[in-house]
Amino acid sequence: MWMSTKPPDWVEGPWSVQLHSVNRSAYAKLHMENRSFPNWIISYVKTGHVLTSTGGETHTVKAGEVMLHPPGLPFSEHADVGGVHLWMQVSILCSHQFDLLMLYRVSPVIAIPNPVRYEAVFAKLLADWGNRALSFRDLKITTSALQLTEMILSGWEKAGNPERSSAYNSSGDRFARLIGQMSMRLEEKLTREELGRLVCLSANYMDRAFQQQFGRTPMQMLREMRLKRSKQLLEMSEETLEAIAASCGFTDASYLCKQFKKVYGVLPGEYRETVQSKQSENVYG
């Protein structure tokens, strides 16, 4: 099993949003066949109802629900009655520029807990998107897009975090799920061969394909994740270096110190002391 039904807590910022289009579309009837786009299509049904299908799997979507169509994956939408969709073509990225909706295997149809709020935020996004002379436009549209994303994830969580089926697997899913596995198993001694088995690839082929996509091998990325997690624990906890090393997959505190100094330029203890001193400082004295 790749992932538990509880959403993982390892997906972190910094967050970024790449919006490619934002629109409101009204129709009398809808017959869209086998369309695909290079980025996520997130389409909220404001009025009407739609049948959407991907890879032979069909869903009925009602007003107040959102459809999520993965990049590069053909989908169809049909409606014999009129409706209005609020939609955007977007990439939502978290740390290491990972695709958030690839890492979270969010179901293809989600009921929005508060449709009125969703529609209000979308209306602001659409207005800001269309005003290219707007001051701080990128900041405003990013803020609105992340608010919409949070509402989508809240709806998914409220439904019990159902995962999308294999019918919705796209070319980006294989490595996204591998990254998810690495993130949830930082404390384990994972080998190249074991990671390769997780994605049904030889270790050498996996390394080449992964590096082509992410600019580093899976083991290099795993080391980055472990060091980043150790950095967070030094900032937020009072755990010993031995405990932090164990929970982040380092053989011992000495090896953690060596790797940490190599990447961050200071020893873990020095970093913790500096951070905690700043955290406890009274800004206004």
Score class of each variant (00 low, 15 high):
L101P: 09
E119K: 01
R117Y: 08
T60R: 15
Y271S: 06
L100K: 01
E273G: 01
C257S: 14
V263K: 09
A111H: 14
E119C: 02
S21Q: 09
R216F: 06
Y104H: 15
N39D: 00
L186W: 13
Y44A: 01
G180M: 03
W87E: 06
S166H: 08
K124F: 12
L190R: 07
P113H: 09
H69F: 14
H20W: 10
P268V: 00
E150N: 07
L198R: 05
I179W: 07
L256E: 03
D80Q: 10
D9V: 04
P71V: 05
T191Y: 05
A63L: 06
G160D: 07
R174F: 02
L153Q: 09
L100G: 00
A145I: 00
I112G: 00
V266K: 10
Q211G: 03
G130L: 13
T54E: 10
H59G: 12
Q181T: 08
A26E: 15
F136M: 09
A245H: 04
G215S: 07
K46W: 03
A253G: 08
H85N: 12
E77D: 09
Y264A: 04
I41M: 09
V283P: 02
S135R: 12
L267V: 01
F136W: 04
L148S: 01
N39G: 00
T52Q: 11
F250Q: 00
V11K: 08
V81C: 10
E150H: 05
G160P: 00
E235M: 15
F250V: 01
G196M: 07
Q232R: 15
E281R: 12
G55M: 04
M225C: 13
T217V: 02
P38L: 03
I110E: 02
A133C: 11
S171Q: 11
E163D: 12
H31C: 13
Y264P: 02
A243I: 06
S16C: 13
I110Y: 01
V11E: 11
L234T: 01
W10Q: 03
E193C: 04
G155I: 00
L93S: 08
H31N: 14
L19M: 04
P8C: 04
E239D: 14
S21L: 07
L178C: 05
S247G: 06
P14H: 13
W2E: 04
I41G: 06
R177G: 03
Q18P: 03
E239A: 14
S277D: 12
D138C: 03
W15F: 15
R197P: 01
K6R: 12
R177Y: 10
M32W: 13
V199N: 06
L134D: 05
K189Y: 04
W87L: 06
S4A: 11
L227H: 09
M67E: 12
D207A: 09
Y27S: 02
V50I: 11
I42Q: 09
M206N: 03
L51Y: 07
Q220Y: 06
T58M: 15
L51A: 07
W15R: 05
T52C: 11
